[in-house]
């Protein structure tokens, strides 16, 4: 009887160690990382409404590229706008960003507050995305063969005459992949 108790204790000890290590092993199965992307947009002309487009390629990140085939999920989590240079400096106009699927279907469109691009020179503005907007983008990205998004920046309400705007769009995707 005493020997049985000892065996039960030893067995219990190992079961405990095995069980907890099992939980810990699970924690190393996958890795979630946030991946930053930067895109430059250049807008110039004389019209009262101007726009420029950039294509987001998920392949443009080494973390993404190195782990293709092991990715479980990739989601858009953050989006920001920055003015790099604006001419004339006191240019006034309403800026909006539109995110589209690679076939041109609009996912969502957002306006940047204020009508002076110089407000955001070296001072990026993070757009507040609603759950619905994030969900729409992520539904598209949930098909892992969809690796491209199109970003269009449009400035409207401009006065006629020559003008130019250099902008940067910052995007963060969250990627979950197997190790």
């Amino acid at each position: 009887m005493r020997k049985n108790n000892k065996n039960i204790f030893i067995a219990g000890f190992f079961v405990l160690v095995f069980s907890f290590n099992g939980c810990l092993l699970d924690a190393f199965d996958t890795l979630t990382q946030e991946l930053p992307y930067t895109y430059n947009l250049s807008i110039s002309g004389d019209a009262t409404t101007l726009e420029s487009t950039a294509t987001v390629n998920l392949d443009n990140n080494d973390f993404y590229d190195d782990n293709q085939g092991k990715i479980n999920k990739i989601e858009l989590v953050k989006l920001a706008y920055k003015t790099k240079e604006v001419n004339p400096e006191n240019l006034q106009g309403n800026i909006s960003l539109t995110i589209k699927q690679s076939n041109g279907t609009v996912i969502f469109s957002k306006s940047i507050p204020g009508n002076q691009p110089s407000l955001y020179t070296n001072n990026p503005y993070e757009l507040s995305l609603t759950q619905q907007e994030i969900q729409l983008a992520n539904t598209y990205l949930s098909n892992l063969s969809n690796k491209q998004l199109i970003i269009t920046a449009m400035v409207s309400g401009l006065t006629e005459g020559p003008k130019s705007l250099e902008a940067e769009i910052f995007i963060v995707f969250e990627m979950d992949y197997d190790l």
Binding site: F20, A27, F28, T32, P124
Partner: peptide, 25 residues
């Protein structure tokens, strides 16, 4: 597990997430 990203003049800086464990055998 989720990482974190910080916005500043040069864009986002992303830092890694953890493994979400508080009891370590």
């Amino acid at each position: 597990k989720g990482g974190s990203s910080y916005l500043g003049p040069n864009g986002y800086i992303s830092l890694p997430g953890g493994i979400d464990e508080q009891s370590i055998p």
